[in-house]
Nucleic acid binder design. Structure first.
Lengths: 352, 352
DNA sequence: CCGAAGATTTGGAACGTTCCAATATCCCTC
DNA sequence: GAGGGATATTGGAACGTTCCAAATCTTCGG
């Protein structure tokens, strides 16, 4: 567009509508609407004329109005419990990418594990008539809260976390197997007192991961010490608190599996404050394999999750359901232990 | 709500509207609307009656319709160039938080530095009649592209990056001063051949940061070597490529300031592959101070930016402008060098 | 050159809200 | 108990689109 012909420049301040286009192109608003929707009904020549009027007047489509009439929305909701956690950020990236290329546009909300905030944003999103929803439910979310939205007509998918008693679609990594494998690894390295750090038992992912941990202990004939399962927020602070608590015990553990990598980062922090080193003084394993895990000091042994793919899968599933396929999705992503240094299996890298 | 009275359960599949509420409460739809808007005009008793009808019928407000009529939107746009970068994720968190508590709900889009994608999402967002927009423009964005939206009526704020020749609100850290300070620090440690890694000169933030870098060199009487400014994508790959390129030079640098922390992470990677250690063999400084910076191996010396606060500031500014204040925002956030280990100022921590 | 079949276009109602001007109701005061 | 100002309520138009049934235009066989 050349400098002279700024759209919206000369005219009044009111919005250019489909009616203005119709007038300018010498057709009816219905025809303009048809063109807008790419209907094959309209003659090529007419379409051209309409299109150039659109260009000339600087028309911008009003999806709100269209949506009101047609009851079809291209907005979806994405509610994340902790966007500052690189794991969830990556998940969001995967989801957003798929939606964007499919012509949908996501609302985002970060609940920071607050069910109250979550309730507010869910309400707000449904007021906007979203076509679908992907949610990582905040801790303490009751199934009924989500259920009341499930009956609202749009598909819902739970990402990463399930909700007891709620049968809706979900996408999550294989938490149980990953945690069992990681714990087996620590046991294989000779550890007997192994702790589990972070998360709360009422979060499905934590339950599954600690379940895998217990299964591995059990298989090795180790009787679990309840005191070694220390719950806490699934973030740095949680990890820091956990390691502090446990190292002050009479019989401290020699290793720990963390609920996730970010908790492990906190543990790294706590160890450092005591001038201890993971891998040498303490066997540490994380979960998720966020990108930063390979750069910690020492590099974090963790369970790899293909987060981006999980996000994409989630979005595709919702898209599928929006388009009428009613079969629910129930995907469990493969995971894989990646051994680095923090577990002590390899010699700790040292720069000197 | 008890099990028996699921809203939306018995009735037809059509939506409950303000008219249904009116009928149920024995008032007119206008009164219902008034109640919905919290108008003080309606009598308390009437309000109660309407409210309980709303509850009873499970009514959900249709903001699309309301917005169509009232031309007031509570949707804002947030377009980020790289959400996988913890720096921008943190920024997004800050922005989202403020908007959410103010009753606004943000669209999110991740452009991954693609102006094409950015154009698409901007179009999509404006079709949805957003009330305001915060954008970290993708590399290569032309001022005109943004300008055409600026004339659309809603406030726009550039976060982190400015656009040449475009006078709209912006919020960014003090890139120049931060980079100068970081470079001075490296010079103070005895380095003379200092590189600058990552980003592209056509990105304002890079220009400002490399400008600070050059200013520090100049002040120290060091003539800059253009070959030591190696441009590249502002991500891990960029850092990796940069350090590789530079270490193969005849006269390699002994230190580098990176465009941002994520680039520095890539450099850490590259050094490791060559069995070199930052802090010992190479002085490395990042920029942004993302949370992960203190956990790298070695811990990253970097320029601290209060990203969360910047995000909140950006959102507040947009809110202010939405509410009619036309004064543009032009905020430059303070920064601070935080010295850790990667620059070599302190002895490198070693776990052995 | 008429009529039918197909292709294209169209006017008006509808979506669910808000706005506005007008009406109805209330409470006092004289 | 009539008048008047405040207080509450209301019907209908409007927002910008899509949908639908109907109208118009083309084309072509006979």
């Amino acid at each position: 567009m050349s400098l002279g012909e700024m759209p919206n420049a000369g005219g009044g301040s009111s919005r250019v509508t489909v009616i203005d286009i119709a007038r300018h192109a010498g057709v009816s608003k219905s025809t303009v609407s048809l063109v807008l929707q790419g209907s094959p009904l309209v003659k090529a020549e007419t379409r051209e004329r309409v299109l150039s009027s659109i260009e000339a007047l600087g028309y911008v489509y009003n999806r709100g109005a269209a949506n009101l009439r047609s009851a079809r929305s291209n907005i979806v909701g994405m509610v994340i419990n902790d966007l500052a956690n690189p794991f969830f950020a990556e998940l969001a990236v995967g989801i957003e990418r798929v939606f964007q290329t499919a012509g949908y546009i996501p609302f985002i909300a970060n609940t920071t594990e607050s069910p109250t905030r979550q309730g507010e944003v869910l309400r707000s999103m449904s007021e906007h008539d979203i076509a679908g929803l992907i949610i990582c439910p905040a801790r303490g979310t009751r199934a009924a809260e989500i259920e009341s939205f499930a009956s609202r007509g749009f598909p819902i998918l739970l990402a990463m976390r399930r909700l007891a008693g709620l049968r809706v679609s979900s996408v999550a990594p294989d938490n149980f197997r990953g945690a069992r494998r990681a714990t087996e690894h620590l046991i294989g390295l000779g550890h007997r007192r192994i702790a589990f750090f972070g998360g709360y038992a009422d979060m499905s992912a934590q339950a599954e991961r600690s379940g895998g941990y217990l299964a591995a202990l059990d298989a090795a004939g180790i009787v679990p010490d309840r005191a070694l399962i220390v719950e806490g927020p699934p973030n740095r602070e949680g990890g820091l608190a956990a390691i502090d608590r446990v190292l002050d015990m009479a019989e401290p553990p020699s290793a720990a599996l963390c609920f996730n990598d970010v908790v492990a980062f906190g543990v790294l922090d706590g160890l450092e404050r005591r001038r201890l080193a993971a891998g040498r003084d303490f066997g540490l394993v994380g979960f998720d394999d966020v990108r930063e895990a390979r750069h910690t000091n020492p590099a974090l042994t963790t369970v790899h999750v293909d987060t981006l793919a999980l996000g994409e899968r989630a979005a595709h599933a919702v898209l599928r359901m929006i388009h009428g396929d009613t079969r629910p999705e129930e995907h469990i992503g493969e995971v894989q232990l990646v051994v680095r240094e923090s577990c002590g299996a390899k010699e700790v890298r040292r720069p000197s």
